[in-house]
């Protein structure tokens, strides 16, 4: 198995773990961490595709994309954490309860 295949498969596994975590866990922080794991999977996928047989050097485009993607992911995660913190301050809740 070539190196980039290991990366690609790992990225898929991370993505699925993250997606499962988002849907299955109820705790705010667990859900936020799950989205971050999903994001790591996606970025790993991009980076693993940078290696191509036709090229003797790494394709720079995915790395530029990943940088942008990480910035976006960090901003969203920070925003989500701020929201979770505020909800905790206001109501003392730390996880989604079943509503209705």
């Amino acid at each position: 198995m070539e190196t980039y295949q290991i990366y690609s498969i790992t990225s898929g596994v991370l993505f699925v773990i993250g997606m499962g975590g988002v849907f299955l866990s109820k705790h705010f922080i667990k859900k936020i961490i799950a989205t971050i794991i999903m994001g790591s999977g996606v970025f790993l996928a991009f980076v693993s595709f940078a290696e191509r047989d036709a090229l003797s050097f790494a394709d720079p485009v995915p790395q530029a994309l990943v940088i942008t993607g990480i910035v976006v992911a960090v901003a969203s995660a920070a925003f989500a954490l701020a929201l979770a913190r505020r909800i905790y301050q206001l109501t003392g809740e730390e996880s989604f309860t079943i509503e209705k």
Binding site: F28, A45, F49, V72, F79, A80, L83, I87
Partner: peptide, 30 residues
């Protein structure tokens, strides 16, 4: 508080959606 909770749920759904989209984009680019 109600709006914040709804907002967090919305944000998490939005992040999940965009990560799934981006994963597809990675595959297409690959």
């Amino acid at each position: 508080a109600g709006a914040l909770k709804a907002g967090l749920r919305y944000l998490l759904a939005a992040i999940t959606g965009s990560m799934a989209y981006l994963f597809g984009v990675a595959l297409l680019y690959g």
